[in-house]
Simulated scan of single mutants.
Amino acid sequence: MKVISRAPGKLILLGEYAVLEGAPALVTAVNRFARVVFFPSPDQSWRFSAPQLGIKDLPFHLEQGKAIRFFDSDPESLEKRRVLEAALNALAAKATRAIPPAAIQVDTSGFYLAGRGIKLGLGSSAAVGVALVAAGARWMHIPLNREEQFQMAWQAHRQAQQNVGSGIDVAASFAGGVLQYRLAGSAEHPSPEIQRLNWPSGQLYWLPVWTGSAASTPDMVSRFRHFARENPESFRRHLQALALASSQGCQALQETRVNQFLDAVKHFYLRLILLTEDSGIPIVSRVHRQVAQMVDHHGGVYKPSGAGGGDMGVAFFPNRIQQKAAAEMLKKAGYHTPELRMETSGVMTETFEA
């Protein structure tokens, strides 16, 4: 038997940082996919390969009800396999029968700029975690319903990131489509809430922009948390403003009020600049500001997507002519606008019998 799962990446449209404190945020799945394959191991031992991470045939041991055990202690390898470890531990704890050893292959080549080896900030680790849980549950004959599968992937990814981040990328990879995402519950016991939204095609146009440099989401979020602890009053003020702008944008999109949505994105971006200046965290970098100026020149609004500092940004326009003009200007300035589409499907799993 061979099991193949495929999960899409994500692009956050609105609500970064505010979502960590319970505000609603917007995210879309995009047509870049993590592919995970489980197939019978030729030597009856567990093995893991992920070419884009530089991992080939990494041996480990796994059995029902027990934690995964690796045979090496390389710190670099440990960091790269956190998602695998968290996902397989969660699955093994649920297994009710002996687990046949598998060779596991992970392909995240779609998350890189073709021919350049540069990774785009599109949520590859979350997509891998979602696909691992989906394929692993099928391989181990664990009867998870959709909610149980999502919760397992969500918890495993949070564990792999040491509880840093909101899990919004997991929601996009799992469910697909354009989503409103919110963390309910307490800080100690957050509970994700997901609502699928319709994108107003023909009325609102988006443009993803790669800034040319990568950024570490866990590092940026950790610095954000540190700022919150050291400057609680300032933190509260910034978060209230960001939460308000994000809530207004979510509501405007639900009601297809395009101008109000664009206003909310613009306000959110301006508040991110103030947070950047107050905290010293380079959320809105110099490059992001340059892109925003070019987008504004063509009647659009722009903001970083995700933790900021680098990686991806996203621009919005009320018509296609403005979108195309901005894309041409950005291209001439040396920026890359990846050909992304909003992906309506979430994780998909297929089984092939020998």
Rank of each mutant, 00 (worst) to 15 (best):
I194A: 03
V265C: 07
R146I: 06
E21P: 05
V37K: 05
P42N: 10
S5F: 01
S201K: 13
R97E: 12
A160S: 07
E339F: 06
L122F: 07
A98I: 01
F70L: 13
R47D: 04
S279H: 11
A252C: 09
D57E: 12
K56H: 05
G129T: 04
A354H: 13
G308V: 01
G310I: 01
R236Q: 15
W139Y: 07
L62D: 02
L58P: 00
R97A: 10
V19P: 01
K266L: 10
G110D: 12
N198F: 08
L144S: 03
R236N: 15
R341E: 04
E277S: 06
F111M: 04
H157R: 09
S279C: 05
T337V: 03
M348L: 12
D107N: 15
G123Y: 09
F111T: 04
H157P: 00
R225N: 14
P218S: 04
F224C: 07
L144F: 05
G165F: 14
T349Q: 02
F38G: 01
G310L: 05
G9K: 07
E230I: 06
H189M: 12
M140T: 09
R32M: 04
Q52G: 02
P24Q: 05
R257K: 15
S45V: 11
I118V: 13
R32A: 01
F60E: 05
Q161S: 06
A102N: 11
K331P: 00
T337W: 03
Y17S: 02
P304S: 14
D43A: 09
Q155M: 05
F227A: 08
G310T: 08
D72E: 13
E85P: 02
A175W: 14
P208G: 10
T28Q: 04
T337E: 01
K56V: 11
Q203C: 03
L275D: 10
D219S: 09
M342T: 06
S191I: 15
S246C: 08
A333S: 15
E277H: 11
A354P: 11
L207T: 10
Q290G: 14
L78G: 08
F38A: 00
Q254M: 13
A102E: 13
A67G: 03
E85G: 07
F39Q: 15
G177D: 08
V36T: 01
V258F: 02
L58R: 05
V295K: 09
L132G: 01
P208Y: 09
V30M: 00
A93I: 08
S186A: 11
R82V: 07
F38S: 02
A95R: 08
N31Q: 04
L183P: 00
L239A: 03
A7D: 01
V347I: 07
A264Y: 13
R257M: 07
L274D: 15
A18H: 11
Q260C: 14
P8M: 05
V178L: 15
W46F: 06
Y205Q: 02
